[in-house]
């Protein structure tokens, strides 16, 4: 990937010639470059970019920067997630300029789950920057200077985005918060996993009304799971995700909970993609089978469907 030219994900977010598809890369706790390649090869044919997470749910894993560099060097297109929880503004800026030298361009800024969500709740939380401030700092770096105003040797090409949660209170404020992020420099918004289509619908409509949907590529997120237990876990333990009891019940009482879990996600994804103002889909996968492929094929989205869309356009 050329470090100075826009990458395919950025181009697609801006041209929107077909739905953009991104997916979350699994966390690593050791292994080799071959393991990273194998995991990436399972995802890459079906998606436009791969998110590398930054100590998700406040659990330590192989670093976001190491994974992003590895993916880039192996020929894949990563989105570097950066959270505010673990590092101060100096460390975050050095991470961003460092990965940019390896050709990493896509940065997704998040506040980050609190340390209390993880397995080391006694850790010091940092939050020297907050999410919107981090978006702005990354955007400033894209002009070739640090927050201090000090110039870099070269101008890194950065494509900055963020996350917003359409289903967390205060619901009526979330689209305004998305606008704040767009004004700070976010050009794509990967939404938090949701199980509430009606809340997503209201959020997207508000984002169309306030201009967010035009200025940033909005990608709602669906989460591929295997059983009702995963839904209950998310509802009880993952900050900011609530799963309606009826949804959990639907999977629990089904004759084939694994298939029902898939169908649930497919319906959520179809609904999300049907909303005017939605630019694509972000997929998280806890099934670890071929469901990412199946979902993108069932929905006819992703790089494999470039031509069909080009013909129909």
């Amino acid at each position: 990937m050329s470090p100075t030219q826009p990458n395919a994900f950025e181009v697609l977010c801006q041209t929107r010639t077909r739905p953009v598809v991104t997916a979350e890369f699994p966390s690593f706790d050791g292994g080799t470059l071959d393991d990273i390649r194998a995991a990436a090869e399972k995802l890459a044919p079906w998606v436009d970019a791969i998110n590398v997470t930054d100590n998700p749910a406040a659990h330590a894993h192989a670093s976001n920067t190491a994974m992003a560099i590895a993916l880039t060097q192996l020929g894949f297109n990563p989105i570097l997630q950066v959270v505010c929880r673990d590092k101060n503004r100096l460390a975050i800026q050095s991470d961003i300029v460092g990965v940019s030298m390896f050709g990493v361009q896509n940065i997704c800024a998040l506040t980050g789950d609190d340390v209390t969500a993880g397995d080391e709740p006694e850790a010091r939380r940092v939050y020297d920057l907050d999410g919107p401030q981090l978006i702005k700092v990354a955007s400033i770096m894209g002009t070739g200077m640090y927050l201090s105003g000090r110039k870099m040797k070269s101008v890194p090409h950065l494509f900055v985005g963020a996350v917003e949660n359409p289903t967390a209170p205060p619901l009526e404020y979330r689209a305004e918060r998305a606008l704040k992020k767009v004004e700070a420099g976010a050009r794509f918004l990967q939404l938090q996993i949701h199980y509430r289509p009606e809340q997503l619908e209201a959020f997207i409509a508000a984002c169309v009304a306030n201009g967010v949907a035009e200025r940033a590529a909005i990608l709602p997120t669906v989460c591929l799971t295997k059983a009702a237990r995963a839904l209950s876990f998310m509802n009880d333990s993952v900050p900011g995700i609530s799963v309606p009891a009826a949804t959990i019940e639907r999977v629990t009482t089904s004759a084939d909970p694994k298939e029902e879990s898939y169908q649930l996600v497919r319906e959520l994804a179809e609904h999300a993609l049907s909303l005017p103002g939605v630019a694509g889909l972000h997929i998280t996968d806890f099934r670890h089978d071929d469901s990412v492929r199946r979902l993108t094929e069932d929905l006819a989205i992703g790089p494999r469907f470039e031509e069909q869309h080009a013909h129909s356009a």
Partner: peptide
């Protein structure tokens, strides 16, 4: 946080 609620609000 000085710029609004995080995504973790219950």
């Amino acid at each position: 946080l000085r710029n609004g609620p995080c995504g973790g609000v219950r």
